[in-house]
Design a protein around this nucleic acid. Sequence first.
DNA 1: CGCGACGTTGATTTGCCTCAACGATTGTGG
DNA 2: CCACAATCGTTGAGGCAAATCAACGTCGCG
Lengths: 196, 196
Amino acid sequence: MADLYQPLFRNIERYVSLTDKERQHIADAFSYRRLKKRQFLLQAGDPCLWESYVLTGALKSSVTDRDGAEHVLNFAINDWWATDEESFLTSQPATWDIEVTDDCELLQITYAGVQELYRVAPAYERFDRICFQQAYIHLQNRIYALYSQTAEERYTAFLKRYPVIGQRFAQKYVASYLGVTPEHLSKLRRQRALVN
Amino acid sequence: MADLYQPLFRNIERYVSLTDKERQHIADAFSYRRLKKRQFLLQAGDPCLWESYVLTGALKSSVTDRDGAEHVLNFAINDWWATDEESFLTSQPATWDIEVTDDCELLQITYAGVQELYRVAPAYERFDRICFQQAYIHLQNRIYALYSQTAEERYTAFLKRYPVIGQRFAQKYVASYLGVTPEHLSKLRRQRALVN
DNA sequence: CGCGACGTTGATTTGCCTCAACGATTGTGG
DNA sequence: CCACAATCGTTGAGGCAAATCAACGTCGCG
């Protein structure tokens, strides 16, 4: 089943080129795992032991605050990654929950696996560097959007940028990701419907 | 003046160890520059040609939105970095302004310089990887704070985490960084003063 | 000294939240 | 396969945190 790893290789080769030997090291380092809807890839309090590449399915990362309110930080569907990096990198208890919202197939790597890959496949460390640079830029833009845009503008931008996500996840999670209540997003959607 | 580079070396050696040869490559790659208060390290529309390490002085990074409102994204004082990474990495026109708020001494490196350093000093690419991982985690936490905390809570956390910044920058920039108006921050401060 | 930028204060407005009630849909056990 | 519960999205009424607008004192600087 070498084909199983093809999507992962293509994901990595967006940024770096891989030799056959490097592909082999990567395939050896990642293990396959299935999770069913409503299972948790990670629960707050446990250490995040895996970086997970999503082959199929859907997950959401969220944090629950002191008041019990859940705040969605990220979505992940096929060809995305799902990890609490802070916990993964420091081995401290996670603050995130990562919950499966559609049955998943994952490819997972441990912290030790990553360190070993850096050693035997330097292209993988370069890939990680580029990934985190992109992710950093993306989060800066998200913060700027939170500062400068209304909820309605953020929702419009979200639909444009991630047309698929809005269909694969419950409205209330989209609302949480956008930083508004489900009720408010519902009202925004109604206003948009009236205009068109 | 080899001493000029010591703060930069120490900054890098927080995360990776350097050989003497690597230190030499790094010193060769970074050039020294002074800027006066009110000058712009970067203006929106120009490409960001440098990653800048701050030896002394103070700068703020901000974006001005369509309505003309300025939003402060980052502060930088000694031993911090100041760059519009999106522009630096893609060579596209910057969206950020980076303005000097106190006379600065900088050590700067170009994109080509970074690529060359990656080649001759692999520790530097590892340093960059770790830096961006840390920065990514930090921004995730900032987004979570924007979702889950009130302005007052964010201000309290800001004072605790960056006691120095609040004193080196005008109140209105701190307000902007926290995502509130200067008037509102002023009222928050008044309330805090009454309590204590 | 006089100008302009900054911080403050108050009055008013507003975007979004909270709370509550209600159908519609989903899923679950008998 | 149906009945029931649970969850979700919607709608409305009322409230609050923060924005807006405007006026004023102060300070640094030319």
